[in-house]
Design a protein around this nucleic acid. Structure first.
Lengths: 249, 249
DNA sequence: TTTTTATTTGCTGTTTTTTGCAATTAATAA
DNA sequence: TTATTAATTGCAAAAAACAGCAAATAAAAA
């Protein structure tokens, strides 16, 4: 077997599976591990792949960096935010929760749209300050360092005194049967209060999160008015939600 | 499984759910918790996520660092903030107002300093979230678009229910005889409430602002406990304040 | 062709990296 | 507080990387 042929095999393997183990490819091509190691070293030097301990990964795989593309699954989140936006009428009073999807919604609010917007998320509030016709009210309270939202009794009390048209909320985990769950107890308490403070709660969630669950329950699916994902409402991934008392958008 | 694959999976999980438990990932990937811990440590060092006790949180969720490129008279403001910092003792309860000087104070709080800090400024709150030992409480209310602080009746009411050791405040204009004045009526009302909510009000102001005044009065000089400027306390520019009931720092 | 030279490959022993385990210490929750 | 859970540290086994060497192969020159 020629060296060149060997290297081509390695490359196609990496392209196909995004990764390869040196031992696997050595066995497959029936050459010593050292030979493969030397091949991979060359390919790395030629910037055809990236050599890592025990194998090699494709360049696209290696360059994955949330720092550059700050928001995970941005395209999906934008699509969701766009759908959510259509629900909001002029002079509505809404509430926007924390999380990147909700932040995206805040970003997409057009300059001409005039609404009153409550929020307990610091980044969302920052975003809303740029919207000329949005009156922003921040629900105060103790700030959670991780999630950058107000939590705690004071927040919950403040929420108990309002009733908005729509609350756009995110969730850590969602499942058709188990409902919305979170990892953090304080956040669950706050989200419960948010849902109570709204006539209709709209859940924004990328489809990847569907069918996942965690420790603490925020609410059942039936307490949510509408579920917005990036998928078509009749997509098969949403089948589990069809029997539930929830709209899909 | 390659280390890179594992770390990639961890990142996706974190991006997806904002926050994850190390134990969950260890179980999912079927490796020891130590391995995951080491991976997360590396990813943290690479600024791909932030490690927290028991888990990890995504950066998009926990990061905010506005470049302070365009701050007028930054050097003076830093000097002022440094002096102010010396007043703060461990476990004090303080309030930090809005404005760039106060923001500078928030920035300079050391990571080891453990205090409780109220604020009504969005940028200050953002900054305080980066301080591990600062418990931050945001005073909610209607947000002012220009000053990025909470204003209005709700803010004033919330302030009426607290009493902090020190309130560090800024002002638009200050004069030894006319006291503190502002251009904006809403802000004056809020600042009044801030001063009332504190045992001692500390005014942070660059010397350039001394001997200026405007439309609406916040309070007289005697209601302020200490005036901090970038100047020496006995500097001649501060002469007009020597006869007043106010400390100079 | 044969000889010489350069390259490639596999092997050996050593060093480094990775991983899991256990004991101690630190942090958090009840 | 105490109980529980997580983090840290040191250690050892396993796997992988590395360096040097020699045999095998390919290429070039005589």
């Amino acid at each position: 077997m020629l060296k060149e042929e060997r290297q081509r095999t390695i490359l196609s393997e990496v392209e196909l599976h995004n990764r390869v183990l040196l031992t696997d490819i050595a066995e497959k091509l029936d050459v010593s591990i050292d030979t493969i190691r030397r091949d991979v070293k060359e390919l790395d030097a030629d910037n055809k792949l990236r050599k890592v301990h025990g194998g090699a990964v494709s360049l696209g795989f290696a360059n994955y960096s949330p720092a550059r593309n700050n928001v995970y699954a941005l395209a999906q989140k934008t699509a969701i935010a766009q759908k959510a936006l259509n629900l909001i009428g002029d002079n509505n009073v809404i509430l926007i929760d924390g999380g990147t999807t909700c932040l995206e919604l805040a970003r997409l609010i057009p300059a001409e749209q005039s609404i009153t917007c409550f929020t307990l998320s610091l980044p969302v509030a920052m975003e809303l300050l740029n919207k000329p016709k949005v009156e922003t009210i921040f629900i105060g309270g103790v700030l959670s360092k991780d999630s950058q939202i107000s939590i705690g009794p004071n927040t919950i009390h403040n929420l108990s005194e309002i009733k908005v048209d729509y609350a756009f909320i995110g969730t850590g985990y969602v499942d058709a049967n188990f409902g919305l769950t979170e990892f953090d107890w304080d956040i669950v308490q706050t989200k419960k209060a948010v849902i109570k403070a709204s006539k209709k709660a709209i859940l924004l969630s990328i489809s990847e999160k569907l069918h996942s669950q965690h420790r603490y329950k925020t609410c059942g699916i039936n307490e949510i008015d509408t579920l917005i994902t990036e998928l078509e409402p009749n997509h098969q991934l949403l089948n589990a939600f069809k029997d539930q008392d929830i709209k899909r958008l």
